[in-house]
């Protein structure tokens, strides 16, 4: 039984208002920017003002009021409605198509590998293993290692002349295809442990008698895996998949540090392109349109995700 009572709104209100203020408002503003061209011109005037003392009286120096340089500025903003121009440009821009391709290939490389490996590791750790809690703790570290720092560390690991993986002869960062694989490998390193932890938790919740029952029915190990465990874990897989998809769409720090998006644009994901467009080249309207393109995709993932989540929050 849950309580009612007006005070519940007071408990809830600060957080709700906060989120409204800090996400809904910026998103609305961003939409505005996508439809309008905003230009600013700053005009400046140099003047000298007297320096005041604590009581607000002009300070004197050699009998004259002491002056200081001050720059006054006035900002003139002009706004023009440009309608769907930015969105049309988005659809026709080869850079955008390229970044979308990079992002998709990255997702396909990284996410299935993370879930597959995570499942295998969970099966491994579900056995009787010496020092399991220590090893399990060690596996948590990558998840919390600062992604930007991780990117730089892997830059040195993939270094092709004298790096620790140089013996493979693989052009880790100098070949466009391999560079994207390398970015995916770093992501796999960082996020397989997450998939592993979640799947392991689900595995450990499988009751012992289920195994016993399967044994009694004469099921082989393979049958046990495919006919019992996989169907049982499917909801977990789906949740992990959706979370990883949503997170992987944010990919930014690792290529920023490791490849700078290169060679060429071979490892420039969508979010990096949008960031550069907005905050390096100040094409704010177009960057906003890009952001909305990404949001549209994310909305699909969110909807799927939360359809699934409703069951957990019933």
């Amino acid at each position: 039984m849950r309580w009612t009572g007006r005070i519940r709104f007071l408990f809830l209100a600060p957080a709700v208002l906060w989120v409204l203020a800090f996400t809904v408002f910026p998103l609305g503003y961003s939409l505005y920017l996508a439809f309008f061209k905003v230009e600013q011109k700053v005009e400046i005037k140099r003047v000298q003002q007297p320096v005041l003392d604590d009581q607000g009286r002009p300070l004197l120096e050699d009998g004259q009021p002491k002056l200081r340089n001050v720059v006054l500025r006035e900002t003139v903003t002009t706004t023009t409605f440009i309608g769907l121009d930015n969105f049309r440009r988005l659809l026709a821009d080869p850079q955008v198509a390229d970044a979308v391709r990079v992002t998709l290939v990255f997702l396909l490389l990284a996410v299935p590998a993370e879930i597959g490996l995570g499942f295998l590791l969970a099966l491994l750790f579900n056995r009787r293993i010496m020092g399991r809690s220590v090893l399990r703790a060690a596996m948590i570290l990558p998840i919390f290692a600062t992604p930007l720092a991780v990117g730089y560390v892997f830059f040195t690991i993939f270094y092709e002349v004298g790096g620790p993986l140089a013996w493979t002869g693989i052009p880790w960062l100098s070949n466009p295809t391999w560079a994207l694989v390398s970015v995916a490998l770093v992501d796999i390193w960082q996020w397989t442990p997450f998939c592993f932890l979640v799947i392991l938790a689900a595995l450990q919740a499988v009751p012992d008698d289920l195994y016993e029952a399967a044994r009694i029915d004469g099921a082989s190990n393979w049958d046990l895996l495919t006919k019992v465990l996989v169907p049982l874990l499917t909801p977990t897989f789906v949740i992990v998949l959706l979370i990883r998809l949503a997170e992987a769409l944010k990919l930014f720090d690792i290529p920023f540090a490791m490849t700078g998006g290169g060679p060429g644009t071979a490892t420039q994901p969508y979010s990096m392109l949008a960031f550069r467009t907005g905050l390096r080249f100040f094409d704010l309207g177009y960057a906003s349109a890009m952001a909305y393109g990404l949001l549209a995709v994310v909305m699909v993932v969110i909807t799927l995700f939360f359809r699934r989540m409703r069951e957990s929050y019933g």
């Binding site: 989120v19 960057a287 906003s288 019933g314």
Partner: peptide
């Protein structure tokens, strides 16, 4: 507490949706 018009789970999910939001979509605003 029990919320009626928006159910509790809807409120929870609404909070969660903020997490899935790509930061790059909000960094400029």
């Amino acid at each position: 507490f029990r919320f009626a018009r928006w159910k509790n789970r809807d409120i929870t999910i609404w909070f969660l949706s903020q997490r899935v939001l790509p930061p790059v979509a909000t960094v400029v605003p």
